[in-house]
């Protein structure tokens, strides 16, 4: 474990806490894409198949349970909770995310580390996570003004993978057999997708103005 990875995990956890705070405190999920939340639940469920077979550390197991539990809880809340689901922007959240799932699964069948059930689903989850934010970014552009908590949620979600890239660089130089090129390349694509959001987020922070994404 190195400082970049720990900071990355904490930032990821922070993004989930901010999202939970927004939904719980405002009893509203306006501006949040249910499709992105469903994609993230799928990412965690397919990535942590080894949850009960490989024990890495207490930290690793606890964090996996937190990520799986929180993502499922958020999807449940946005679908079933009568107050929250009323504020869902269903007519704006129309990204066809099933295509993302199909494309990522196809890619995982072609590019993976080993042709085993677990490795293919792991590669699938890595590719899917890279594009999972697309429905959310599209929804932000369509819904115009972005409330602070939603903006912070997306910011932390983008920042965590950028910290993981630093972690992979660090591990590449400090460990002999370290090669995570699937996660690395996918992580670079993932972080790049946030580039324009980061730009407008920085502008709004500098001008102390409302975050506005151009339509």
């Amino acid at each position: 474990m190195n400082i970049f990875r720990l900071a990355g995990d904490m930032t990821h956890l922070m993004s989930i806490l901010v999202l939970l705070l927004k939904i719980y405190a405002t009893k509203s999920c306006s501006g949040i894409s249910l499709k992105t939340q469903e994609l993230y639940a799928l990412v965690f469920l397919t990535r942590y198949l080894d949850l009960f077979t490989d024990f890495i550390s207490v930290y690793n197991t606890v964090m996996k349970l937190v990520f799986i539990g929180s993502s499922l809880a958020i999807v449940w809340c946005m679908r079933m909770h009568r107050t929250v689901k009323r504020s869902y922007d269903g007519q704006l959240d129309t990204f066809r995310h099933y295509f993302l799932v199909a494309a990522c699964f196809l890619s995982a069948l072609i590019v993976h580390e080993k042709f085993t059930f677990q490795e293919i689903f792991w590669a699938f989850s890595i590719y899917l996570e890279a594009v999972a934010i697309l429905p959310q970014l599209v929804l932000l552009q369509r819904s115009g003004n972005v409330d602070n908590l939603t903006g912070q949620y997306v910011f932390f979600l983008g920042a965590y993978r950028a910290l993981y890239i630093l972690n992979w660089i660090y591990r590449y130089f400090t460990e002999q057999h370290f090669s995570r090129w699937i996660a690395c390349i996918s992580g670079l694509v993932q972080t790049a997708l946030y580039a324009d959001f980061f730009y407008y987020y920085f502008i709004s922070w500098k001008n102390n103005s409302k975050l506005q994404l151009p339509a």
């Binding site: 792991w122 057999h177 370290f178 995570r180």
Partner: peptide
């Protein structure tokens, strides 16, 4: 043989 690098990252 290098054993399968366990997925120690989240």
């Amino acid at each position: 043989v290098q054993d399968q690098v366990s997925k120690d990252e989240l």
